[in-house]
Amino acid sequence: MHNFDFVKPSSVADAVRALSAQGAQALSGGQTLLPTMKQRLAAPAVLVSLTGIADTKGVRLDKGALSVGGATAHAVVAKEARKHYPALADLAGGIGDPAVRSRGTIGGSLANNDPSACYPAAVLASGATILTDRRSIAADDFFQGMFTTALHDGEIITGVVFPIPEKAAYVKFNQPASRFALTGVFVAKYGSGVRVAVTGASANGVFRWTEAERALSASFTPAAIAGLSLPSDGMIADLHGSAAYRANLARVLTGRGVASAH
């Protein structure tokens, strides 16, 4: 990979300053960025590690919502969210593998917005709020298509606030090689209604399946969506599955999510 200057600030303010340098790029857990850099597809002049900032790490309950620091590793969420938001813990505990979960962070995953990443599904289905060094962004506004988000250059995700649902589940169907989500569905039932977010399937990245949300808000049972289907237009088609296959998976996994929600 190309060489770069490495800095590791210990505060958000210092990190923001460092990121204002020409060619600077943020480094979270690096589990996606490093392989990209090895292929010389990314070549930052300055790499700003965000893992040295203590107050962007950890999971805590705050006014009935679960607050997760932006630099919190997946393994930490898998463990510490278990009691409060088990479906979120399940999701975090199913990302990558244990070594990836030691390093990878929620902030890094969201900022990258890989169309096959797991976290965007939880954030969107939970109607979570993304906190940055300068503002808060509603999940519905945050994801703006494959590898695209509402973040500005140099803006850092400091935390995510998840409203805790009555019931929820994440059902992931692995792409057999990468173990990313070939399709993953997060179903969350709130007093105000049900939200369903699908990742891995659409070329536009994570999306809400509003038709299913309406049906499930009326009746939170697998039967409620049995007659629905997703159009395959705009679904990803590759050697791991056709668009129609992904549309089918989204439907099947939604039903299974409803059945297993806890």
Binding site: L27, G30, Q31, P35, L47, P98, S102
Partner: peptide, 25 residues
């Protein structure tokens, strides 16, 4: 691509893919 795991070491007690972390980090 950070998948084979032959490089796993422990960093502060946690398993880490040593090919996917910078020494300075």
């Amino acid at each position: 691509t950070s998948q084979c795991g032959a490089c796993v070491v422990h960093v502060d007690g946690k398993p880490v893919k040593s090919c996917t972390v910078f020494a300075l980090d």
